[in-house]
Amino acid sequence: MNTPTTFHPLARLLHWAMAGMIVAMLFIGAGMVATVSERHSGLLAIHKPLGIAILLLAIARLALRLRHRPPSLPADLPLWQRLAATASHWLLYALMLALPLLGWGMLSAGGYPVILGDTMRLPAILPENALLFAWLREAHRYLAWLLFLTFVAHMSAGLYHGLVRRDGVLASMLPSRRRREPVVTDG
């Protein structure tokens, strides 16, 4: 069996859809806690259902990732870059799962109802405990900063592969028609 040269089409779709959602989420989260204007309420109302959507998509994406091998990195890529790529990819998976759970957990611990949209209410996943709330709230903040920095590094690395190295790594996540390899047809 040959190693694939591109990501599974569904993986590519999930990657770009979630990229938009996660980047929007990071800016919404940073913005909503930094204003006393009406934007605070409006952004908060988007933040919660968007977070749950990211959690569900992240679970689906992780399952897909474990089932379908991703294309391998170029053989000439320096070891440190290879390690950085692997570590940052798993860090991204961990954070896109952990941040929504932390948000859900911190609201539960703070005794807040977790309301999505107008009427849908999620159950509490932790007991009411203000001390636990404080720890989870700060973990939510600092891990969100870590996710933002990891995203910036990931974006920069993707562009480095696409613009500087031009080694097909960026293309492997782009829509199929940009694929460089000739398509091998049967018989």
Partner: peptide
């Protein structure tokens, strides 16, 4: 909205102190 935002900040400060 301002009350909601400011109360949340006050709540985080005092619970962080308790914790």
């Amino acid at each position: 909205a301002a009350r909601s935002a400011a109360y949340a900040d006050s709540y985080l400060r005092r619970t962080a102190e308790e914790a």
